[in-house]
Amino acid sequence: MPKVELTNMCMIYDKTNNKVLVQERIKSWKGITFPGGHVEDGESLVDSTIREIKEETGLTVSDLQLCGIVHWHNDLTNDKYFVFNFKTEVFSGEILEETDEGKVFWVNKDELPTLQFAEGFEERLPMFFETKHSEGFAVWNEGKAGQLKWL
């Protein structure tokens, strides 16, 4: 039976200071990304994103805007892996400097490209900043990871 895994990611943008909140992931998909996590059973996509952001950053977010979806399809098992990408400028609270997922910190939006991203994260940035793509799709299996095709 094929598995379907639902995850989320959220760019938190501090427009006043031209900064975005990033996470330096140390568990899986190591490197700099925006925070996010898994959708739990019985949880909406937005609610899961709000919960994950609170757990991983300490911030409470609202007014989430969907930026697009990244869809990975395993052509051997038919498993599917989805990342629902959101952004917001509405947040409150104090950031946690570090969790078991990694360090969390603000970075100037213009300095973002100089960071050590998790593999494949850089190609997703236009989805957040330019609303350029609604979907990224790729085929993967244990022997290969295809290039995302932007739609």
Rank of each mutant, 00 (worst) to 15 (best):
M1T: 15
P2M: 08
K3D: 14
K3S: 14
E5T: 15
L6A: 10
L6Y: 12
M9Q: 15
C10V: 10
M11K: 07
I12S: 07
Y13R: 05
D14M: 02
D14I: 03
D14P: 01
K15Y: 07
N17V: 02
N17S: 11
N18R: 11
K19R: 14
K19S: 14
E24A: 12
I26M: 07
S28H: 12
S28V: 12
S28L: 10
S28Q: 13
W29F: 14
K30N: 11
K30E: 11
K30C: 14
K30Q: 13
G31D: 05
I32C: 08
I32L: 08
F34E: 09
G36Q: 09
G37S: 06
G37V: 06
H38C: 14
H38E: 11
V39E: 02
V39C: 03
E40G: 00
G42H: 04
E43Q: 09
S44D: 07
S44E: 09
V46Y: 01
V46W: 00
D47T: 07
I53F: 03
I53R: 00
E55Q: 04
E55I: 00
E56D: 15
G58N: 03
L59E: 00
S62H: 10
S62Q: 10
Q65I: 15
Q65P: 01
C67W: 08
G68I: 06
G68W: 01
G68C: 01
I69H: 11
I69E: 13
I69K: 12
I69Y: 08
V70F: 04
H71N: 09
H71R: 09
H71Q: 10
W72Y: 12
W72P: 08
D75S: 03
D75H: 07
L76Q: 11
T77R: 01
N78F: 07
D79G: 02
D79K: 00
D79R: 00
K80Q: 09
Y81F: 07
V83T: 14
F84W: 09
N85Y: 09
N85R: 02
K87G: 00
T88L: 01
E89K: 07
V90P: 01
F91G: 02
F91A: 02
F91I: 01
G93W: 00
E94W: 03
I95R: 01
L96S: 10
E97P: 01
T99E: 07
T99H: 01
D100S: 13
D100E: 15
D100V: 05
G102C: 05
K103W: 01
K103V: 04
V104P: 02
W106H: 06
W106A: 10
W106Y: 03
N108Y: 04
N108I: 08
K109V: 09
L112W: 03
L112I: 00
L112A: 00
P113E: 14
L115M: 10
Q116Y: 15
Q116T: 13
F117N: 03
F117I: 08
A118I: 00
E119H: 08
R124Y: 01
P126T: 05
P126V: 03
P126D: 06
M127R: 00
M127T: 08
F128K: 03
F129Q: 06
E130S: 04
E130Q: 13
E130G: 05
T131L: 11
S134R: 09
F137W: 10
A138H: 04
A138S: 08
V139Y: 15
E142V: 09
K144I: 02
K144F: 05
Q147Y: 13
L148Q: 08
L148P: 09
K149Q: 11
W150P: 05
L151Q: 11
